[in-house]
Design a protein around this nucleic acid. Structure first.
Lengths: 154, 154
DNA sequence: ATAATTCCTAAAGTTAACTTTAGCTCAAGC
DNA sequence: GCTTGAGCTAAAGTTAACTTTAGGAATTAT
């Protein structure tokens, strides 16, 4: 007894290509918020197909689920998102993507400079500066090619 | 009693900015292979500073340690790598990097097309094809935006 | 009215890349 | 020569993003 606009987790899995277990996990992460029917089973909206598809695309671009949840937060909660809503967040998304690609490109160009110099002189080595591309959240400073000039024999 | 060309794990940590525990972990992963002194302590070569710096840079570009180990495998094992050796593997590395950037760019351009169409017609939706950018090793098919045309009301 | 699916929860397992902890041993400085 | 800082090992913990397992309950198909 699936009402017109409600779909089961299995149907959603088929439509998106995601595993049922992944969808349940996404619910725990606040990426979808299905209702429940009388028997306690999840009932998703058809619009969740698009929602999860967006999640998959964003992941393909390397975004974390946390970040994706933030982005999805910009969709209207009161009504089913329209094509226009999706277009809007996709555009913001595109902007971030452009930045990522540029950061990666800059880093690559720096590597070019480094190939030439062999990094024997850190003062001139562009890779020395730990900027660009998502600063790792990891502990401590992560500078590259040493913290002092690497001597020729190193 | 550190011989001229040998350095302790602490020194290596200071020179690279890595944590001592990370260096030990890298050893278990076959990224460095230090010798041991009489007392059982690790003795690295000065050239390992550069080796680990390379590891850090490659990671910044998103390479996994497994992949990095493969790349490092192309260095000569019989002697200390020269600047020329490093230049060579950096160039191969750059080629892979270029591919990655291009794949990301292609995917971004496809997103552009998708923003316009609102993905109401999958036949025309470029994101449909799950090519480009490292196919996930995860289980099962991961197609995007559904496996059938997403109807307007979805 | 069953049998076969599908779904549910809770908990544990998985991979990558490390860190933390515990309990000891070396090595270096005064 | 002894105290303290560095190092050592083995095992367990951590985060992200899921999957797998176990044991039931709800649906759907026949």
């Amino acid at each position: 007894m699936q009402r017109r606009n409600e779909i089961s987790i299995g149907t959603l899995a088929n439509r998106t290509g995601l595993a049922v277990s992944a969808i349940r996990y996404y619910e725990t992460q606040g990426l979808v918020a299905p209702e429940r029917n009388a028997g306690g089973q999840r009932r998703f909206l058809r619009s969740d197909i698009r929602r999860l598809s967006f999640v998959m695309i964003a992941q393909k671009f390397g975004f974390t689920l946390d970040r994706i949840r933030e982005v999805l937060g910009r969709l209207p909660q009161s009504r089913t998102p329209t094509a226009k809503d999706w277009t809007e967040i996709s555009q913001d998304f595109r902007a971030e993507l452009d930045e990522q690609i540029q950061a990666l490109t800059r880093l690559r160009d720096k590597l070019d400079g480094c190939i030439g110099c062999g990094c024997l002189s850190l003062d001139r080595c562009a890779l020395y500066n730990p900027d660009d591309v998502a600063a790792d959240k990891g502990a401590g400073p992560r500078y590259l090619m040493g913290d002092q000039a690497v001597r020729p024999e190193d």
